[in-house]
C-alpha cells in the first residue's frame, strides 16, 4: 500500500533466529494450553527483544467471543506502553506477532488497526483465517483500516494442526456439558 509508513515498516523484519526462538515459545504456550484443556493457540508480541504481550484464548471465562489470544496479547501490549509512558503507535509499528495459528478475520483487522507490521504464524486457519484462508484482510485495500502487514507462514505448521485436531477431538459433541476443571 502506498502509505508513507510503508517504507519504515518494510525495514523492520525479524531474522531467522528470532523467528525460530519466538515460535518455540509460542508452541510451548500452545502445548501448555492443550494440556490444560484450552484452545491450543500460543501467541506472543515481541518488541525489540522483549515480550510485551502474551495471550491465550479467554472466550469462555469472559463470555466475550472476541477474546482471542491476539486480542488478549494486544491489551497487554497497551498496558506495557502505558506503564512506561511510551507511544503505543510507535511501539506497535516495531512489534512482531508470533502465533501458532493464522489470525482470524477479526484479529487480522485488529492488527491492521494498530499498525502491526509483521505476523509470523504456524498453520492456516481454514475456518476463520484472515491472512488468506477465508479472506485476505492482511493485504486488502482498506484505506481506513490501519496498515497492511506482512505474513511469514508455515513455521511448524503440521505440529500446530495436530494440536488443533487433538483439541477438537476432545471437544466431543457427545459431551454437551461444559467441562469442569480438575485443578
Amino acid at each position: 500500500m502506498g502509505t508513507e509508513e510503508a517504507g519504515e515498516a518494510e525495514s523492520f523484519y525479524p531474522s531467522e533466529e528470532e523467528i525460530e526462538k519466538w515460535m518455540d515459545s509460542a508452541f510451548d504456550m500452545a502445548k501448555d494450553a492443550l494440556e490444560n484443556g484450552e484452545v491450543p493457540v500460543g501467541c506472543l508480541m515481541v518488541y525489540g527483544d522483549e515480550v510485551v504481550g502474551k495471550g491465550r484464548n479467554e472466550v469462555n471465562e469472559t463470555k466475550n467471543a472476541t477474546r482471542h489470544a491476539e486480542m488478549v496479547a494486544l491489551d497487554q501490549l497497551l498496558d506495557w506502553c502505558r506503564s512506561r509512558n511510551l507511544d503505543t503507535r510507535s511501539v506497535c509499528e516495531r512489534t512482531a506477532l508470533y502465533v501458532t495459528v493464522e489470525p482470524c478475520i477479526m484479529c487480522a483487522a485488529a492488527l491492521r488497526l494498530i499498525r502491526l507490521p509483521v505476523v509470523v504464524y504456524g498453520c492456516r486457519n481454514e475456518r476463520f483465517g484472515g491472512c488468506g484462508s477465508v479472506l485476505d484482510v492482511s493485504s486488502a485495500n482498506l484505506p481506513q483500516t490501519g496498515t497492511t502487514f506482512k505474513c511469514v507462514s508455515g513455521h511448524r505448521a503440521d505440529e500446530a494442526v495436530e494440536m488443533l485436531k487433538t483439541f477438537y477431538k476432545q471437544e466431543n459433541p457427545n459431551a454437551p456439558k461444559p467441562k469442569t476443571r480438575k485443578d
Partner: peptide, 13 residues
C-alpha cells in the same frame, strides 16, 4: 461495521 467489528459479530453469533 468495519472488518474487525463485523467478524466479532460472527464470533458472537
Amino acid at each position: 461495521p468495519c472488518v474487525m467489528c463485523a467478524m466479532a459479530l460472527v464470533h458472537s453469533r
